[in-house]
Simulated assay, not measured.
Amino acid sequence: MKLLETTVKNNVLESMTKILDTNRAQLLAANKKDLDAFQKEDQAMYDRLILNDQKIDGMITAINEVKAQEDPVNRIISDKKLANGLVVTNKTVPFGTIMIIYESRPDVTVEAAVLAFKSNNKILLKGGKEAIFSNKILVDFWHKALLENKVASDYIKLLQMDRTETQSFLKNPTEQLDLVVPRGGERLIDFVKEHAKCAVLISGRGNNFLYIDEHADWDKTLAVIIDAKTAKISACNALDKILINKNIPNYEEKLVALQTILKERNVTILVDNEIHKVLNEEALITENTIWREEFLALKCCIGAVNQLEEAIDMINMHSGGHSASIMTTKDTIAADFMQQVDCAAVYRNASTRFTDGGQLGVGAELAISTDKLHHRGPLGLKKLVTNKYYIYGEGHVRN
Score class of each variant (00 low, 15 high):
114 V>N: 07
74 N>Y: 01
300 C>K: 02
341 V>Q: 09
151 V>W: 05
110 V>Y: 02
183 R>F: 10
286 T>M: 07
299 K>D: 06
232 K>L: 01
329 T>V: 13
308 L>M: 10
352 T>D: 15
340 Q>Y: 14
256 V>Y: 04
181 V>L: 12
274 E>T: 07
129 K>C: 01
165 E>L: 07
117 F>M: 02
250 N>T: 00
73 V>R: 11
164 T>E: 14
184 G>C: 08
357 G>Q: 13
280 N>D: 09
302 I>L: 04
223 A>S: 06
308 L>R: 08
355 T>D: 15
24 R>G: 08
320 G>P: 06
77 I>Y: 06
346 V>A: 15
269 I>P: 01
323 S>M: 14
348 R>G: 13
135 N>G: 04
375 H>M: 09
254 K>L: 03
330 K>P: 12
328 T>R: 07
166 T>Y: 09
177 L>E: 15
273 N>P: 00
176 Q>S: 15
190 D>S: 15
37 A>H: 12
17 T>M: 11
372 K>E: 09
373 L>W: 14
2 K>Y: 04
50 I>W: 02
125 L>N: 08
45 M>F: 11
36 D>W: 14
153 S>E: 12
27 L>I: 13
268 T>E: 08
82 L>E: 07
311 A>R: 08
45 M>T: 11
347 Y>T: 14
287 E>P: 01
355 T>I: 12
83 A>Y: 04
74 N>I: 03
332 T>L: 15
109 T>R: 01
12 V>M: 06
44 A>Q: 03
303 G>K: 03
340 Q>V: 12
58 G>M: 15
12 V>R: 08
131 A>W: 01
342 D>Q: 15
137 I>F: 03
200 V>R: 13
167 Q>D: 08
324 A>C: 12
318 H>K: 07
298 L>Q: 03
253 E>L: 02
25 A>Y: 08
